[in-house]
Structure formats: C-alpha cells, structure tokens
Design a protein around this nucleic acid. Structure first.
Lengths: 225, 225
DNA sequence: CCGGAATGTCAACACTTGTTCACATTCAGG
DNA sequence: CCTGAATGTGAACAAGTGTTGACATTCCGG
C-alpha cells in the first residue's frame, strides 16, 4: 500500500501489469517535487521549471517529455487534489445516515483529511485566487462540483428534501465556504499545536450549528420554478 | 480632486504645503504600477522588481530609494487597500440606524466600493493565501480588525447587544467571510455584465438573509464568562 | 544662493530562467 | 535479438533578474 502512488495508479487503465511505467513514475516525481516546494512559502505561479526539475532530481529538458508547460503540471495537481477531496466526502457519505451529530463528524473528518493531504490542500488554497487563470477556473469548477455532491447528500435529510434547487445551492455554498475557511485556518495554524487546532474546530462547529439553526426558519419558494 | 492620490496625501502629516514631495510621488507611482501589473493575471509574488520600475517609468536602482525589497512595497499596498475598506464601512455606519433593509444597503455599498477600488481588492484577494507569508499575516490581521469594527456596529442592534463576545465573533466572521466571497465573485465576474452581477448580488443577499434568520434561534451563553 | 541631502541614472556583475538541439540510454514488442 | 519509440542527458543560447557602486540631477533650508 504505497502511500501516495495509488492516487496515480488509478489513472492508468491501459497498463495491465500493476507497475507504473518509468514515464508515469517521473511524472509523479515532478508533481511531488512541486508540492514539496510549495510548502516552503512560494506559490505555484512563482515556481520555476528548473526549480521543480532540480527538486525532482532531473535535468530541465526532461520536463518537456511530460508536460508542455508549467501550467499543465498545475492542471494535473488540481485534478489530483480534488480526487482526494472527493474520496473524503465519499467516505463521510458511506458512514450511514445521520445518527449522531453530523456536524461534529463532518468537521472531524475534514480536519483529518486536511492533515493527511496537507500539501494538496495548500496548493488549492494558494492557487484558488492567485497565479494562472486557467488553474483558477479549474478550481472554481471543481469546487462547484463538490458543492453539487454535497447537495445530493443533504437532500436525504428530512426537511431539506422539500427545498428548491436555488435554496439548496445557497445552503451548500454557505457550507462549502465554511469548510474552505476551516481548511485554510488549519493550514495556517502552527502544526502540532493541538490546543490551537481544537479551538479552530470548536469555532467551526459553532458556526455550522448556527447556520443549521436557520434551516427551519427558511421558506423555500418552490413554486418560483 | 485627484482620484487616487488623496489616499496617499493623508499619509504625510508633516508636509505643510499640500503638494506631495517628489519622493512621495514616485513612491505612489511604484504602488500604482504594481497594482496595474497585477490586473493582467500575475500575482504580486511573481512580479519582478524590474518589471515594476519599468512600468513606473523609472530605472531599477531608483527602487531602493523608496523600498528595501518588494515585500515592503507589498506591505504598503496592504495598508493602503485596507484604508479604503475601513473608509467604506465607515460610510455605511454613518448612514444612520437600520431603517430600510440593512442587508441590501450593505451589499450594495460593498459592490460599489469593490468597483471603485477594483485593483486594491484584487491585490488583497490574490495575496490573502499566496505569496509572501509576511503579507499573508498582515492581511489576516487587518481582516480580523475589520471584523471587530463590524462587531461594534452590530452591537447597536436590538437583540445582538445582549450577545457575549464569543457569539459576536462567530457572527462577524461568518458575515465577513460572506462579504469576502462576494467581493471575490464580483472580481471574477466579467466586467460590465450587469446581469451576471445582479445575479451575484441576489445570491449574496439571500445568503445574508438566511444567516440572519438564525439570530433569533441562537442562545448566547453569556454566563460562560 | 549655495551646500548638502534626497532622488534619479548608467554601466556592470554574477545568476537564473525557458527553450533548442543533438546525442545517449532504456524499454517494450515483433 | 533488434529496432523504433519513449525517456533522459549535456551543452549552449538569449533574455531577464537582483544588487552594487560611482556619478548626475533636483530640491530645500540656512
């Protein structure tokens, strides 16, 4: 169970022998090198091709065997990062219907996954509004898709299944924004500071509880269609 | 009434003659040049010293007469951007107590000011989670301060004046996040597309109304102090 | 008006960058 | 096994970068 490469191995469907080809391996190496460099303060857009290849232990020209430009590498990172995100929400969904406090469990899993995929989340946070515009729109699209997923999940709740699409979208964007904010706070908090992190979690849960309080009071205009 | 320089002229209190000194002028020129370049897709961190001086119509070495490093220029831009933000909230506050729908007026003023200071807001959005870490923390501090301002404003409302500080902070961060999100959406929307913008405003108002619906249901634990 | 501080200019440096080309190595399949 | 494709390597280029030092200009206060 290699810790990272499985996210890649899913990608190649036509390679019958489970081993990744050499190309795929260094391709992955480039992605990991970029993520590693991103941790150290810089943003992806201010990351040079040579820097990445150097970190990946490869000569600059070899880069072109895999990507035409740095922007393409970024695209790969976007899709990969959101693959892990989707996996997360899938795991939450599979834990059955709301029995305990859903909010607490959701926040907990979110935090756990942010830690497990720290660099991917960092990349997303940094590129969401900075750097290459193509990456920006990709990220926005993926976030919207994530919100849609969340909507189908929420539709299984007692009251919400009667809501119109517009109201649903409003609620999900509100929650997605909250979750994004949580992830960013976790990333900015000092690592291995359990107290600070607990405080963040506490506040996040209070926020979500507060939001949920508005649900019964909302009158979704279903006839407006 | 020079459109931009007034935000700077406030700065110099010891210059008695209303005219800015040559130094202040080119200093301002550098800031404007940076903002101008930022509009064209790049982020501040991936902006070279020479690029800025070139845009400002100045030789690279002259830069050092005003700033020690690009990061310092960024700091100036941060404080300047938030000066306009504070001015905005002040204007909303001075419009008297809540008579009409507060939410509508707030969103409207926000959108107006985003347009009036488009490049400043763009800078903030881009650097909030990218690039130089020193700028990141400055921005976070300023945003927190903005939330505190909002809290004192909200404390004049009937119900909220009984809330404890913790609950107040939760509410303000929720609203600030919403406003930040609005600003970012406005920035990303195609300019001069009134329809798209109206849609954004509509959604934003619905979100804020929704949030406000939770207020009566919330039980602030004041004794928890 | 004049002398010193503030500001701006020019030339040069040592580096890094993206991209190219020709050449070496590795690999997979007939 | 051997051939062609995939992948990696090395040298070289033109251009851009941050920073330095010495020199010119502008400006303001005594």
């Amino acid at each position: 169970m290699p810790p990272v490469s499985d996210s890649i191995s899913e990608k190649l469907e036509q390679v019958q022998a489970g081993r990744e080809s050499r190309g795929q391996r260094t391709r992955l190496g480039l992605q990991e090198a970029a993520l590693r460099l991103l941790g150290h303060d810089k943003s992806f857009s201010s990351l040079s091709l040579r820097e990445v290849t150097r970190e990946a232990g490869i000569v600059p020209t070899a880069f072109y065997r895999h990507y035409q430009t740095m922007e393409d590498l970024g695209q790969d990172l976007v899709t990969d990062s959101f693959r892990t995100l989707r996996r997360m929400i899938r795991s939450v969904r599979s834990e059955g219907l709301p029995d305990g406090n859903v909010i607490g469990r959701t926040v907990e899993t979110l935090v756990k996954h942010v830690h497990a995929n720290r660099m991917h989340f960092q990349f997303i946070a940094r590129e969401r509004y900075g750097g290459y515009s193509s990456l920006r729109v990709s990220i926005q699209q993926e976030i919207r898709a994530f919100g849609a997923d969340l909507a189908t999940d929420l539709a299984r709740f007692p009251v919400l299944d009667r809501w119109d699409a517009d109201s649903m979208e409003m609620l999900t964007t509100l929650m997605v924004n909250a979750m994004v904010s949580i992830a960013e706070q976790i990333l900015d908090a000092p690592q291995n500071d359990a107290a600070a992190e607990a405080e963040i979690v506490r506040r996040a849960e209070r926020q979500l509880v507060f939001i949920s309080l508005a649900v019964p009071a909302w009158r979704p205009i279903k006839a407006a269609k």
